[in-house]
Design a binder for these strands. Structure first.
Lengths: 126, 126
DNA sequence: CAGTATCCGTAATGATACTG
DNA sequence: CAGTATCATTACGGATACTG
């Protein structure tokens, strides 16, 4: 089986050993893909996002958003009003990541059940 | 824009807030996607893998491989001989992850350059 | 509301040495 | 060759309190 339909010989490494590593550098954070997933449907406010991702702390949410912003993946729109309102959205560059997020979504939908069962069996053997 | 073409109301959470989180739990490790990427083309021996992923230490490689094996993603074939030979390969379940890995690969190939440039600019502003 | 600022624990990762 | 074992370090992430 040869699934490698690309010639990687010209791929400039920039310190990465392969393109997958580079991608991981952008969306590799523990929460980044989840954040991006929620942003697919449109802009979201900070506290909305916090509700959508129950496991994350306020601090981590801020940090991950800042990194995504720095990398040009998301846009941060601040509305000058009291109380403040900040909306996050995907940039057009960020939208190029949607196929990745979608494939992760699809996989999760189809295989989570199996994974959970598998892990429970593994625990018994421990 | 409504990209959510799936009804998630029936998706059993199993402790995850969304399917993406579940997927991340499987391939979220710093090196797992890279390892899986190399396994797409067929089985690979331990030391080959170490060469293909220069950044990883022997210890981390072992740990990540063990986790992938535990989750049923890869198969570990031990040849009883001296010197020992161990080959890793994707299970059929592991192969269901290929679309995700491929989309990460494609994205990396197309956008790494841009990311690197973007980061260099960001550094100047610091 | 949307954050910062501190402090702190632990899990993740690394370095090095050793082995069936 | 394909790992373990041990120790050290760091980075990740959490809890809590405070603020424009």
């Amino acid at each position: 089986m040869n699934n490698q339909q690309f010639d990687l010989s010209n791929w400039q490494s920039h310190g990465y050993s392969c393109p997958v590593e580079a991608t991981l550098d952008i969306i590799g954070g523990k929460w980044k893909s989840v954040i991006l997933y929620h942003l697919i449907d449109g802009e979201i406010r900070f506290n909305e996002l916090k509700r959508l991702v129950p496991g994350i702390t306020q601090r981590m949410l801020t940090l991950q958003l800042r990194e995504l912003e720095r990398d040009g993946i998301i846009h941060r729109e601040v509305y000058k009003q009291v109380p403040p309102k900040v909306e996050y959205s995907l940039t057009s560059f960020g939208e190029t990541l949607i196929p990745i997020i979608k494939s992760m979504l699809h996989w999760g939908i189809e295989h989570t059940e199996k994974i959970v069962q598998h892990r429970e069996q593994a625990e018994v053997k421990d």
